[in-house]
Measured scan of single mutants.
Amino acid sequence: MAEIKEKICDYLFNVSDSSALNLAKNIGLTKARDINAVLIDMERQGDVYRQGTTPPIWHLTDK
């Protein structure tokens, strides 16, 4: 899980924002549900936040 978090942070640092599906595909996974639990956990920790569009767009925080 730590490896996936690191990949998410690296990708969002370079791209600035992404949907869960696009993010999953760009870090080597196939479906948004493969990454949603990790994104929600990271959101609780304050590492990422989502804009409430459908589907949500994920961003890194300034943390």
Rank of each mutant, 00 (worst) to 15 (best):
D34W: 00
A37W: 05
K63D: 10
A37P: 11
G52P: 05
R50N: 06
N22F: 00
A37R: 12
K25S: 04
I40M: 14
V15W: 10
R44C: 03
V15Y: 10
M42N: 06
L23P: 08
K7Q: 00
L23H: 05
W58C: 06
K5E: 02
P56F: 00
A24H: 04
L29E: 13
E3A: 07
K63H: 07
K31W: 02
I8T: 02
K7C: 00
T30R: 07
D47L: 15
T30M: 10
R50T: 06
D10E: 13
G28V: 02
W58E: 09
G46A: 01
K7N: 04
D41T: 05
R44A: 14
Y11D: 04
I4A: 07
M1I: 15
S16V: 09
T61I: 01
I27K: 08
V48S: 03
E3G: 10
I35E: 00
L60G: 05
I57D: 10
K31Q: 14
E3T: 10
C9Q: 11
D47R: 13
N26Y: 11
P56Q: 04
Q51Y: 12
C9V: 15
I27F: 08
E43W: 01
L29H: 08
T54K: 12
T61W: 01
D10T: 10
N22T: 11
N36G: 07
M1W: 13
L39G: 10
L60K: 04
I57M: 13
E6I: 00
M1C: 03
A37C: 06
V38E: 11
E3I: 05
K5W: 05
D34C: 00
L21W: 12
G46Q: 02
L29I: 12
L29K: 04
K25D: 11
G46S: 03
L39H: 05
N36W: 10
C9T: 14
F13C: 14
S16P: 11
F13H: 14
H59M: 09
Y11W: 07
I8K: 03
L39N: 06
K25M: 08
K63V: 00
L21D: 15
A20M: 01
W58P: 06
V15P: 02
K25W: 01
L39E: 11
D47N: 08
N26C: 07
Q51R: 13
I57K: 11
K7L: 06
D62L: 05
E3R: 07
I4C: 00
T54E: 14
I4R: 06
E3W: 11
N22M: 04
T53R: 15
I4N: 08
G28M: 01
S18V: 02
S18C: 08
R50W: 02
E6W: 01
I40W: 06
V48F: 00
L21G: 13
I35K: 08
G28R: 01
I35C: 07
V48C: 06
I57N: 07
D10G: 04
K7I: 01
K25C: 07
K5Y: 01
P55G: 05
M42P: 04
T54N: 15
A37F: 06
G52T: 02
I27G: 03
P55F: 06
N14Y: 13
D34R: 02
N22S: 08
P55N: 13
R33C: 14
T54F: 06
N26A: 14
I35V: 12
T61C: 08
Y49C: 14
A32V: 14
A2H: 10
W58V: 05
A24E: 05
P55V: 08
P56S: 03
D47W: 09
Y11L: 06
R33P: 09
D41R: 01
N36E: 15
I57S: 09
A20Q: 05
G28K: 09
L21H: 12
A32E: 14
N26I: 09
C9N: 14
K7G: 01
L23W: 02
S16E: 10
L39A: 11
S16W: 04
L21V: 12
D10R: 13
T61E: 05
D47V: 15
G46K: 05
V15E: 12
P55M: 02
E43R: 00
H59G: 15
L39Q: 09
D41I: 00
E3N: 10
N36D: 14
A24L: 04
L23I: 15
N22H: 11
L12Q: 04
M42R: 03
M1L: 08
G46H: 00
